[in-house]
Design a protein around this nucleic acid. Structure first.
Length: 556
RNA sequence: UGGGAUGUCGCCAAGUGGCUAAGGCACCAGGUUUUGAUCCUGGCAUUCGCAGGUUCGAGUCCUGCCAUCCCAGCCA
């Protein structure tokens, strides 16, 4: 019994019932992106749900591009979407479709509605239509063209298709109910004239079907059993059902709505995301601070960790904002088990071991994972001159500071005990070097009887590999940036910090670019090859939990 | 003075009339530890938006109210 992709929720309950009642004997879902933008963490939920549910029930999940508006769509987006889905860990196999694959059938269904007297060509201008649609408190009024004959409508619609009318001069509308409380039912437009090159059908069409007409029919054509979408389409369900009830098709999928995923301190609307890119606030759609899948990928978030995050937040109809800490917890949880440990110094401070022989180098063994021997171990060079982290020295340290200060002994990870003897300052009064002594009996990090509270990381100066490290913090300093008048006001000016002089122990940089490493006591990092530089660049994936930060804060 | 939906711990979320209202995140208190990491232990809703009602028994059923969200594209 393999583990489920999706935890039980109200949708799986519906599916369970449908299967038990023999309404269906299999499950077919679909993920229907419009190729007009990049996928983001919100889409990840839909992907996990649709593909996950299908997998859990031994069903299939189609990838269907909802490409009914050539004005906004491009092949580049479609390709990027496919790449993101694959990276994310899902496979549509041979089931890749386009709504545009069905343009001929969609057109035929439209004629069928006309023939049944259930659709008509309307010559009103967009302004007139808006006026006659009414509003929440005012019912709509019938179009003066509503009662055209079937023959006339058919002739007009065919002429529309033939390109005899100007863009926007006519539309085809479903004849439903201009009095309906549900505005979607007030004779919705189902076809519009738009002379535009389509990514799939080229210039074959000058009329394109609208979402509400296309989506339900596409679902039915593909034999979708459960059509899962987000809450804002709840009002469209009556129209979804109306279309399928009034055309000759033997499949009627059930539309089920769930709430979309929101993560605190992030933004996911296409409009806002592109504003960040266009204004140069970020490095591009795949900036490691972006909530796009390509951003998360470049940041180093493992797909499996994101999937586990999605799984942990569940599926419901309640609008919610999930705390970013839940996402980070999922990332850490995954990385703690999978990331090899290495030592990297972000802000180097030179240390000289006065009683260590000059010119001597010895190799010390360090385990690659403290809890998992299968990771093996590596040899780390040790010598007289080292680098440690600047923050591991404090001039006036209190008792709770278990690291370097004059006279205090600490353990160098995997190496020796050293005692800080003196701090050397430059003219500006900054500490630039520590003079220490070591205990030759403490090789490997243990010495008889003596306990040392602190263990710090280090790198042999002569062997250190120079790297650039990029530290990331949340892009916004407001939990719900989208709720603000101007979300750009909430931009965190310190979301990126570049550390140009970081050091990494030898043998790591450039060895394997796809591995996420834990720089012990610092954070998780992954190589970023997006930009060529003289030094390898490492992106901080996620920090480790830091209870010291709390202690430090409390003790002032 | 329209239609649709949602309200269970700071954030998610189980619960489908009957033992003491799951679990995760966050938070708090301890323990282990050659990462102040991990791991482990304990704590954390007398109460389920509010008010009535039905019932031997209600978060679960009924009524009313309140709050929040979505809808007036020839976008999806």
């Amino acid at each position: 019994m393999t583990e489920k992709n999706v935890v039980e929720n109200f949708i799986t309950h519906i599916i369970d019932e449908d299967l038990a009642n023999h309404k269906h004997n299999h499950v077919v879902t679909r993920f229907p992106p419009e190729p007009n933008g990049y996928l983001h963490i919100g889409h990840a939920k839909s992907i996990c749900l649709n593909f996950g549910v299908a997998a859990d029930y031994q069903g299939t999940c189609h990838l269907r591009f909802d490409d009914t508006n050539p004005e906004k769509e491009s092949r580049e987006y479609a390709e990027a979407i496919k790449q993101d889905i694959q990276w994310f860990g899902f496979d549509w196999h041979e089931n890749q479709f386009h709504a545009s694959d069905y343009f001929d059938r969609l057109y035929a269904f439209a004629e069928e509605l006309i023939e049944k007297g259930l659709a008509y060509v309307d010559d009103q201008s967009p302004e007139e239509m808006r006026e006659n649609r009414g509003d929440f408190n005012r019912p709509g009024t019938d179009s003066p063209f509503r009662d055209r004959t079937v023959a006339e409508n058919l002739q007009l619609f065919r002429a529309m298709k033939a390109g005899e009318y100007a863009d926007g001069s006519k539309v085809l509308r479903a004849k439903i109910d201009m009095q309906s409380g549900n505005i979607n039912m007030r004779d919705p437009v189902i076809y519009r004239i738009k002379r535009m090159h389509h990514i799939n059908t080229g210039d074959a069409w000058c009329i394109y079907p609208m979402y509400d007409f296309t989506h339900c029919i596409s679902d039915a054509i593909e034999g979708i059993t459960h059509s899962l979408c987000t809450l804002e389409f709840e009002d469209h369900r009556p129209l979804y059902d109306w279309v399928l009830e009034h055309i000759d098709i033997d499949c009627h999928p059930q539309q089920i709505e769930f709430s979309r995923l929101n993560v605190s301190f992030t933004v996911t609307s296409k409009r806002r995301l592109s504003q960040l890119v266009e204004q140069g606030t970020v490095d591009g759609w795949n900036d490691p601070r972006m909530s796009t899948l390509s951003g998360l990928r470049r940041r180093g978030y493992p797909p499996a960790a994101i999937r586990s995050f999605i799984k942990s937040v569940g599926v419901s109809k309640k609008e919610s904002v999930i705390s970013m800490t839940v996402l980070e917890d999922a990332i850490r949880n995954h990385l703690n088990k999978t990331a090899p440990r290495v030592m990297g110094v972000l802000r180097p401070l030179k240390v000289v071991i006065e009683n260590y022989p000059e010119g001597q180098v010895e190799m010390l063994s360090g385990a690659n994972h403290p809890q998992d021997e299968s990771f093996g171990s590596r040899e780390i060079p040790f010598s007289r001159e080292l680098y440690v982290e600047q923050s591991d020295y404090q001039e006036n340290a209190n008792r709770k500071f278990f690291r370097l200060t004059e006279g205090r002994e600490v353990r160098l990870r995997h190496a020796y005990y050293i005692t800080c003897r003196e701090a050397i300052k430059n003219e500006a009064g900054e500490v630039v070097e520590l003079r220490c002594t070591y205990d030759p009996e403490s090789r490997g990090g243990t010495a008889d009887g003596r306990k040392v509270k602190g263990t710090i990381h280090w790198i042999s100066a002569a062997h250190a590999a120079p790297i650039e490290v990029r530290l990331y913090d949340r892009l916004f300093n407001h939990p719900k940036p989208a709720s603000l008048e101007n979300f750009m006001d909430a931009i965190n000016p310190d979301s990126l910090e570049i550390l140009p002089n970081a050091m990494l122990e030898p043998g790591i940089a450039g060895q394997d670019d796809e591995v996420v490493y834990q720089f012990e006591r610092n954070a998780y990092f992954k190589r970023d090859k997006t930009h060529e530089t003289d030094k390898p660049i490492y992106n901080q994936v996620v920090t480790m939990r830091d209870s010291w930060a709390k202690i430090e804060q409390e003790s002032g």
